[in-house]
Design a protein around this nucleic acid. Structure first.
Lengths: 205, 205
DNA sequence: GAATGTGAACTGTTTCACAGCC
DNA sequence: GGCTGTGAAACAGTTCACATTC
């Protein structure tokens, strides 16, 4: 029903509007949103049809109301807990990124096999043994998790996340993990990204 | 002419075939590639039309030859140098990721403003002042760069990369950097990714 | 006049289906 | 039989264009 791409753009609009709101501007037109988001006015209007908020021809969209509508459409909850498995360099970088307490999204817990860090707080999140996964996922109503473990254990970790009830996975391991149909996976593979960008970079010379 | 999506899948096929090749298997059918890549047989055959290599009906595709054809199509060069600007947590994680010397892609240099690390080697790449950017980009024929600096300096860094001759940028800063038309940008924004995955995670309950 | 909302047209991508081949 | 290569069909996503509203 709702395409991946539309959802992604709505999230972008939301972040842009939040910044915009800061300077006491009340209303915004589709062409202004498009300009900021690198999109087109009709695309913006199309996307906004999904969320059900309608503007008007004189003032465009009321930023505050539009933002609330997008928020509600994307997810009604106030705070979202996520988890992260694999506290290596990349895991730490992501924990750091989300340690900003003002965000709606919080990494409720991290997991690793290294006994030296289990029990420690790393960037505001406590690190646990993977044995505690089920308990923490249920307690914190977690539906989304990062996989930042090495290739060799990625599938195993994915299986554990799925069996704990996780429905969305952001996977950084360079492998296509196999999950049931009702689990959404977003792969971020640095090698593939570099190769793709490099292809278009050389094409653009 | 060649779509983003086709290029990305070709890269995935290439990585999969490399693994496959290891076990002395010589040939592969489109349905096998599809199975590994999470695609469909017709999609695979369609994609392979772009690279110009044709298999045969008895044995499918010769893995070695197909791999060479994809490589040639994606990029003829043997070694590709890339650079990275912003040696924080995330920058280090990426430097670490690409420090594996067997990869075709090497981070030729990193850049940062921190005088304490300028001149040091971090995961096999020497860290330089941004003042040395132009020189290093030219010397190493670099066309692709990572931006892993904070939001506040992302646009400034992007401008410098562009003026140094970079044609492809992988941007981790949560902002839509503005670049000329002939520069390809791939944005990786953890907040947007989390929000998107979380949306589909809750939809899938 | 300049904006929104949206049916219709268009463009891009994926899948189907089948001729040709082994 | 089962495979590839590929026109044609189907589907998805984007843009156009205009009636309507302010």
């Amino acid at each position: 029903m709702f395409s991946d791409k539309t959802i992604e753009r709505l999230i972008i609009y939301k972040f842009l509007l939040e910044k915009y709101k800061a300077n006491n501007i009340k209303n915004v037109f589709s062409h202004q949103i498009a300009e900021m988001a690198g999109s087109t006015p009709s695309q913006v209007r199309r996307d906004l049809m999904s969320v059900g908020y309608t503007g008007n021809q004189k003032n465009g969209y009321n930023i505050k109301e539009l933002n609330i509508s997008i928020e509600k459409f994307l997810h009604p909850a106030q705070n979202i807990n996520i988890i992260l498995v694999g506290v290596g360099n990349l895991g730490k970088a992501i924990l750091n990124y989300f340690s900003d307490l003002s965000s709606k999204y919080k990494i409720a817990a991290s997991f690793d096999v290294d006994k030296n860090i289990i029990g420690e707080y790393i960037f505001c999140s406590k690190c646990y043994s993977i044995d505690d996964l089920d308990k923490i996922v249920i307690e914190n109503n977690v539906k989304t998790g990062f996989i930042t473990v090495p290739l060799s254990s990625a599938q195993e970790v994915a299986d554990k996340l799925v069996s704990a009830g996780i429905k969305g996975i952001i996977n950084f391991a360079p492998v296509r993990i196999k999950v049931p149909e009702n689990v959404y996976v977003e792969n971020i593979d640095f090698s593939i990204t570099v190769e793709k960008v490099n292809f278009f970079a050389f094409k653009n010379i």
